[in-house]
Design a protein around this nucleic acid. Structure first.
Lengths: 339, 339
DNA sequence: TCCCTAACTGTAAGCGGTTACATTATGAGG
DNA sequence: CCTCATAATGTAACCGCTTACAGTTAGGGA
């Protein structure tokens, strides 16, 4: 049996209250008592029992995050931000990643269970009523990232503006037939908003919005995945006439598109320009032009908001919207300087 | 105040013991009692308190993992495997990522604290005596991934063989001046082993082992990072004569090397062939040839071993060594079929 | 009719800490 | 010398749940 504070109390000939005081606060304990306790703890190799502390303190110093997908560049970026912000605050991170998309709800419930963590971060969580309700009941502090909901702190990017910016950039570069690769069906909100931004930009300059210029990815393994971009691009390039530029709803899809083009012997950006969305880590490696989302900042900001709310549960709900920033690299054919 | 089992007990007019029995086991409870309890729980919106359960059960249904670096392709792969294996077992995952390399020890200690998790997975942890000791004391089940230690279950790859295989492949392809990019100093064990494999292969065929053919990366931001590969490759390519092939100790370094070559206008693989190590996710995207480590399998196997040990703490310690598999893509100039 | 067993259910002691409150000792001020 | 604030420590309740053990009840068998 590992030693408890009772053992320490015995050895140091004090009460458990005193032991606890020595181990935790600075509060009034006589120096030599403190010494005796510390020595006893040391010699017994004492380690506090986390569960017991959590229960007694009604606090876990842990925050939970629900990630739809581990091993995804997008979430990896956010997670890194979270981790960075968490470490100095000495919170631990409980990661809930559903093994299957349908399991999201269960994971949210689990993450929000009382006594498990002090607050919950939800990444890209589609907030069905069900989920919203069980969140409400658990009355845990919650911060949403890459989604929004009027009742919760939210952090997200202006997707519409991103789509618009992307398309404008391509238009300004003189491209005439600008295609778009969107997500699989059902189209998640962010994808729909990006598409609308794209459409609006075209409308504004009076470009035709041929449906033959829009292709849809698949839902597997997830809505913004590479495979979808790959097949969508193949379809687009085989149309007659093919687009001379393509705006993809995500970088992963753009990377799939890149591969499709390469297989068809279509050069990028000479024969077809390509623009992604997200600026995930690998985009820099492959020279993909894109609209940047500050993923790390999402994570850091989310932690700030969450910890603030943990300390002050009634603070007003605030949302933060980021403006996606155009990052010009090799694939959009408008590069002026260096990589 | 959220409802507790006492509230349920009151409402259903039974004792807390019965409530607990209804909520947990199948053990003997009269059907209508069960009903009353369930109804009460339902109507009160009862949720068990995780910390309290953990304390009473002396079990957390959580496993902890210490990752040197979040947001790294290598660990992302392993994490995904871990997650996959964990979900069906309904364990939760506590992720400890040190914000700074020096904080590893602290994170290990934290992860191993009693009452926090039921077992610990250590990824690439350098096992100083200190750490080994505090692990010992905590007497938690432990599994090591990408490291080995006789006292613990370990999962790792045969790095020496990988280095050897890589170099042999390049030799067989007819390259004459085979360079090597190793990690920053101090060289982690895996890097040293890969380098020795490289050296042994050269020795065997009587090739000279010019130190001018070996370059070292930097330690920042971590030993196998892209930046190190980038600078090392620049140095190698500026030597006279430059190598005609390079074996990099990691894929990230190889990707940095790729970038260096591109900036110097040196074509890969025509002017210099390149081989990486790990087969991280992005390698496929950039067509990097490499030696594959089955990262997902590491994670899954690690979980299997750990959970087995949790259930049966005295089972014999077993190690699993994987054989790295050569994956030929574009960068080593020996491609025969398609990508 | 009486005893015994099986089926339920309740009592209360933990699990390992934290902490409000009570108690004791100490020394300063009058 | 007495009073009282103050510092140091102890007592014991409590956090919310689990579970060993004891108690109750009802039905079956002799």
């Amino acid at each position: 049996m590992p030693p408890t504070i009772y053992d320490i109390a015995d050895h140091a000939d004090v009460s458990t209250a005193t032991v606890s005081r020595v181990l935790n606060d600075e509060s009034k304990v006589a120096p030599d008592t403190r010494d005796r306790v510390m020595k006893a703890a040391q010699s017994l190799g004492y380690q506090p029992h986390a569960s017991a502390q959590n229960l007694a303190r009604n606090r876990t110093d842990t925050i939970a995050v629900v990630v739809p997908l581990l091993a995804n560049y997008f979430y990896m970026g956010v997670l890194r931000g979270i981790q960075n912000a968490l470490a100095p605050k000495s919170y631990d991170l409980l990661v809930h990643a559903p093994s299957h998309p349908d399991a999201v709800e269960e994971q949210v419930r689990r993450a929000a269970q009382r006594g498990r963590s002090d607050g919950v971060l939800l990444l890209s969580a589609p907030l069905h009523e069900d989920i919203a309700n069980s969140l409400d009941e658990s009355s845990q502090p919650v911060v949403l990232v890459d989604t929004r909901h009027p009742d919760y702190e939210s952090i997200y990017v202006d997707n519409h503006r991103g789509g618009y910016k992307a398309t404008c950039h391509l238009l300004e570069a003189g491209y005439q037939r600008i295609g778009h690769i969107t997500s699989g069906t059902p189209e998640p909100d962010p994808a729909a908003e990006r598409r609308r931004g794209y459409e609006e930009a075209l409308d504004e300059v009076g470009h035709p919005r041929a449906s033959s210029l829009v292709a849809r990815g698949s839902q597997e393994p997830f809505a913004f995945a590479k495979d979808g971009g790959y097949t969508a691009m193949k379809r687009l390039l085989q149309r007659d006439p093919p687009p001379d530029a393509v705006f993809a709803a995500s970088d992963m899809q753009a990377i799939g598109a890149l591969q499709a083009a390469s297989e068809l012997g279509v050069r990028v950006p000479e024969e077809v320009a390509l623009l992604g969305f997200d600026d995930i880590d690998v985009s820099a490696h492959v020279g993909l032009s894109t609209l940047r989302q500050p993923l790390r900042d999402y994570g850091e900001l989310a932690v700030e908001k969450l910890t603030a709310r943990i300390q002050e549960p009634d603070r007003p709900v605030s949302s933060t919207v980021f403006d996606p920033e155009l990052v010009v690299r090799d694939t959009c054919g408008t590069q002026t300087g260096e990589t």
